[in-house]
Design a protein around this nucleic acid. Structure first.
Lengths: 194, 194
DNA sequence: CCTTGAATTCAACAGGCGTTGAATTGAATG
DNA sequence: CATTCAATTCAACGCCTGTTGAATTCAAGG
């Protein structure tokens, strides 16, 4: 760590993913502006210029670090859910995903970046919400205001995870996923029914 | 503006509030980390060290700039609202407040600061939510999980304003307050009824 | 008229920031 | 064995950050 030997090291081809992991952690904890390239590099045990070599600019690294490991399609098996259970399935899927540490880090990064006031940092948030609403929710809903109702569902879920994991106001941080589902699912279902 | 005369100026005792206004705008637009003392000072037409002279540290200025001009008690005349209209009154009051530019700037500052990853910046958000939930909402609700339900209402409202004014996903930014109230109030009412 | 003290700017500090370009190492390729 | 080239570090650039202390101006109080 003190005087690191220069040049190519023998066989560690996972430097790239080490950097990504460190970046996710920093962005999740401090947001886009708050996280620094040097701090990420430090966590990854690597020189800061290596991040630029691999990923380009800071905004590029941010975008690269927030790609979900699994596609939303796999998570949300929408088609074979009875309509009257949509609310519960949606709530359980969303809250459950946040319990997986890798996913939570990415979600927190997206969430914090969305509030950063930097346009580069808002984009992932906007894309996430847009995709979730337009492709997954509104597509299987009926009525003229289906999009607005779907967006309200997304806003509700996001607001809850924000209070639960970022601002941390009790009792949300102490509640289990089951308790949260019982609390929220009926209202999601109500949006679904229109 | 080019070479500002030093020393005390003849009679402008509102410098203090000029600074506060500039601070609110900057914090609302860029968040706590993103806003800089020099940028705020520049907007206020004043040297940066004057901000420290008046308010102390950056966190102090942040806290000072987010004090609501009117107390929540006056806004939300809770006591004489029929129970079955609580959801609508709450939604209209909250969304309506965001339509007042001065209030919106403060709310945005609180919201953005809450996501900043800096503990100083989270405090106003946490206090706002805690006060709103524990003192205004849960106090007039019944049932064992009244606090959780009240917090869910707050999370829902906050999530919606976040999507509407920060991430800006349509159709929320284009909807009127009345349309938003029609959309959200029934679900708030459902939380209220338990 | 003299003194006090608040209001304000200036100049600087020490450190952090994102980014770039050059240098170095060493495994892989021929 | 010589060459190539990706991986990696070093050193620096220019700029911005929050904060401090001293200097200056000027209205008000005695």
């Amino acid at each position: 760590m003190t005087t690191a030997a220069r040049g190519r090291r023998p066989g560690n081809p996972d430097t790239r993913s080490t950097i990504l992991t460190a970046a996710r952690a920093q962005f999740a904890a401090k947001g886009f502006s708050g996280a620094s390239m040097r701090a990420i590099a430090g966590d990854a045990g690597v020189d800061a210029s290596l991040l630029h070599h691999y990923f380009g600019t800071k905004a590029d690294l941010y975008a690269a670090s927030l790609e979900l490991p699994i596609s939303p399609d796999q998570v949300l098996a929408w088609s074979d859910v009875p309509p009257e259970q949509m609310g519960e399935v949606l709530a359980r899927t969303f809250f459950g995903a946040w319990e997986v540490p890798e996913v939570r880090a990415i979600m927190l990064g997206i969430l914090r970046g969305g509030m950063d006031g930097n346009e580069d940092a808002v984009r992932p948030f906007r894309e996430f919400v847009t995709d979730m609403v337009q492709r997954r929710l509104a597509a299987s809903m009926e009525g003229e205001d289906a999009e607005a109702r779907a967006l309200a569902m997304a806003a509700h879920l996001v607001g809850i995870e924000m209070v639960r994991h970022v601002v941390r106001v009790e009792p949300f941080p102490s509640m289990t996923v089951d308790e949260l589902v019982d609390l929220v699912a009926p209202r999601l279902q109500s949006y679904f029914d229109g």
